[in-house]
């Protein structure tokens, strides 16, 4: 146990280092993009004169590294700063968006992870049967359609033809939980279709991979039912790759949903970040990327810890 604690502390420290590296990359990446906030906001209406005034007003006339340092200092003292574009507190700006994003991601995860595990275990159990092929074909087809296309198809059936769910997810903060779930049903379903195949196939592959191992042969010879073999003996040992893929997909549900947000007009963090990148609102981009990166690092850490806990060899390295 102490070993795990050590790993966790170590990884947290490394996580901070990663965050620092990301903030550098993002800041100077956006800095390298042609144009800045003043030009982006004025758009076609920009002239050299007005851009110059705007830059001074925004403090963009200061060199990039100074702006970065003052941001870093703010971050260290718990101040995310204000959006350059509209001078709003970033913590306030991001707060609602983040809770929306986590709500949608959590909703989709609550459907997709159990579903994927269930389908994957069944597929491993009934491998090469008709069931296996049908599930495989269906999930593969659903992930080979681009997200927005899956979304449009769901909208066609469930919003336009049947009228069961709204075609856009106009969620605001004062909705009840039931209303929120109802309004985010289609985006959650879209995300489920997008991530379920990956996790389900990895579950199936990891289990099948173990079924040939000597210890499973042994269990099988004892005459234990195939379902029990999988659940008791194969699954625990197959957890490492499965948990890894689940972590990647969970991260995706939080970080990568910008297209679903656009199609369903769902006010989440992804949209905010894309907007801010295209307008070069660097403090907001930095704050978003810090949040995304933290989510990713935490999920990864959990995945690694689960892998370690389930594999005694990793738990007690020589």
């Amino acid at each position: 146990m102490i070993h795990i604690l050590k790993i966790v502390t170590q990884r947290f420290a490394l996580g901070l280092l990663t965050l620092f590296a990301i903030s550098l990359i993002i800041t100077f990446g956006v800095e390298l993009l042609p144009g800045d906030l003043a030009e982006a906001i004025l758009g076609q209406g920009a002239t050299p004169e007005t851009v110059k005034v705007f830059r001074t007003e925004l403090g963009l006339d200061k060199p990039a590294h100074l702006r970065y340092l003052s941001w870093l200092y703010g971050m260290a003292t718990g101040d995310m700063g204000v959006s350059l574009a509209n001078k709003r507190e970033i913590s306030e700006l991001i707060g609602i968006r983040l809770s929306n994003t986590i709500f949608l991601g959590g909703f989709a995860a609550a459907i997709s992870i159990p579903l994927a595990l269930f389908l994957g275990i069944l597929a491993a159990l009934y491998r090469n049967t008709l069931y296996d092929r049908v599930v495989n074909t269906f999930t593969l087809t659903s992930i080979s359609f681009p997200e927005f296309f899956v979304a449009y198809i769901l909208i066609l059936f469930f919003a336009i033809k049947l009228g069961w769910f709204p075609g856009i997810s106009n969620v605001s903060t004062n909705l009840s939980l039931g209303d929120k779930l109802y309004r985010s049903m289609l985006p959650a379903a879209t995300l489920t279709l997008v991530v379920v195949a990956h996790m389900m196939r990895m579950t199936r592959a990891a289990i099948i991979n173990l079924l040939a191992s000597p210890y499973i042969e042994m269990v099988r010879l004892k005459g234990i039912s195939p379902m029990k073999i999988i659940l008791r003996h194969a699954l625990p040992n197959a957890l490492a790759p499965i948990v890894n893929v689940v972590a990647i997909n969970l991260a995706y549900l939080v970080v990568g949903v910008v297209i679903v947000e656009v199609v369903f007009v769902y006010p989440g963090l992804g949209q905010l970040m894309v907007d801010s990148v295209s307008k070069r609102d660097i403090p907001v981009v930095q704050a978003c990327s810090m949040i995304f990166a933290s989510v990713y690092i935490l999920l990864n850490l959990s995945a690694d810890i689960i892998s370690i806990v389930t594999n005694p060899r990793l738990l007690h390295p020589r």
Binding site: T18, G29, L33, F292, N300
Partner: peptide, 25 residues
């Protein structure tokens, strides 16, 4: 450590944003 951290950094940046940055530059 080095390889894993580099990958961590790259993966923690949303891939669409990453592609947008690289391809726009």
């Amino acid at each position: 450590q080095i390889l894993s951290r580099i990958v961590d950094v790259l993966m923690s940046i949303p891939s669409l944003i990453f592609a947008l940055l690289i391809l726009s530059i």
